[in-house]
């Protein structure tokens, strides 16, 4: 019942990562005049069959791309946004033929569902939420959690989707009286939800009852942590965090991801793995995504780095292509592909 203290992943790893672990599958360019902001994958119903499609988001347009063959993609739908720019795509597991997007300037002001009319296949938008939205996450079983407001005036809401993209059912969770930064579902416990807060706490809810079960204070050495993944095993909660505000240290370089173990009963926690950049790599985390045991990050240097959290080291580095820095990285939710994007609309799909 004790845990090894923090191991540091990726430090002397220059010779252990394998550049060939990422193989280019296909690429396409989204010809948009505005800046590329996000990419994602979604299942889309076409003539009664569900197809794995790619969604690209620019500031003023979201596009759906369907596969023509293994190498080519065709744009089939576009949704336009003239008033408020798109900030991010919000993937919702277990839904198909529906895309959620967050809109706003610096902060999220609206969440919209994008879908097509069943009759004429024309694109339509449904406003789901509006206000001072601090955090949003799509959950399994067609649900979406969002927090609106700050501190004591905060509302944490779970919305369940109806077939037409609207909201079918709403439920409130007990707010933690501190501003929520990010949410994460807990694999292994169906009704558990985690949140990270601005004062470095991890909060745990019961989604069924709305109860706030526990607050766990985590190490103050990293502020404003983002929670990417959580799973419960053998009575312990394993949490993958990233630290966008972390400063470089001489000993470890720049920490990008951290695996933390929490005992939810006692609120004790300990770091078990710190994913740092391989020697010779500089930069900090711009954005990251974690799926199962693999974590990918775009670094300020323009390179994408991938860590295997079970092996405990960096397994792939993807330097900028055609002298253009990477700006987006996402794991596909429809297969094991890595989606990598550049600001000008280039999307590259790699097999990992």
């Amino acid at each position: 019942h004790s845990i090894e203290q923090t191991d540091v992943a990726g430090l002397p790893a220059q010779d252990t990562w394998n550049p060939s672990s990422l193989q280019l599958v296909s690429k396409f360019k989204n010809p948009s005049s505005s800046c590329s902001v996000d990419v994602s994958a979604v299942w889309w119903d076409r003539a009664g069959a569900k197809e794995p499609c790619i969604v690209t988001a620019c500031e003023d347009v979201v596009s759906l791309w369907k596969p023509l063959d293994a190498l080519q993609w065709e744009k089939v739908h576009t949704w336009h946004f003239t008033e408020v720019p798109v900030l991010q795509i919000v993937p919702v597991p277990d839904v198909y033929s529906l895309i959620c997007v967050a809109l706003g300037n610096l902060e999220i002001r609206e969440i919209r569902a994008l879908l097509c009319s069943s009759g004429d296949e024309s694109e339509k938008q449904v406003l789901l939420k509006s206000g001072n939205i601090k955090a949003v996450l799509g959950l399994t079983k067609r649900r979406l959690v969002s927090s609106i407001g700050t501190f004591c005036s905060q509302q944490v809401q779970i919305m369940t989707f109806a077939e037409d993209g609207g909201s079918k059912d709403e439920q409130l969770l007990m707010p933690p009286d501190e501003t929520i930064l990010t949410f994460a579902e807990v694999q292994g416990i169906q009704d558990a939800l985690l949140g990270t807060t601005t004062v470095n706490n991890i909060v745990i809810w019961n989604l069924k009852t709305g109860q706030l079960l526990k607050k766990v204070h985590v190490d103050d050495s990293y502020q404003a942590s983002v929670c990417h993944r959580a799973y419960s095993e053998m009575g312990l909660l394993f949490v993958v965090l990233s630290h966008p505000c972390a400063k470089e240290s001489q000993a470890f370089g720049s920490p990008v991801f951290q695996l933390l173990v929490i005992n939810p009963k006692t609120a004790q926690s300990v770091g078990v793995l710190l994913c740092c950049l391989p020697q010779g790599q500089a930069g900090r985390l711009l954005e990251g995504d974690v799926k199962d045991h693999v974590a990918a990050a775009v670094l300020t240097s323009g390179t994408i780095a991938v860590w295997d959290l079970t092996l405990g080291h960096c397994t792939a580095l993807l330097p900028p292509v055609s002298n253009q820095n990477w700006s987006l990285v996402k794991w596909s939710v429809t297969d094991s592909h890595l989606l990598a994007g550049q600001k000008d609309g280039n999307i590259f799909i790699y097999r990992y």
Binding site: H1, S2, I3, P264, K265
Partner: peptide, 21 residues
């Protein structure tokens, strides 16, 4: 090595029965 205190496999149910509704 770090001691995390007593561990319960049913932590979620136990915390749910203790927390205010």
């Amino acid at each position: 090595r770090a001691d995390l205190g007593p561990i319960s496999l049913n932590w979620f149910e136990e915390l749910s029965s203790e927390a205010p509704l």
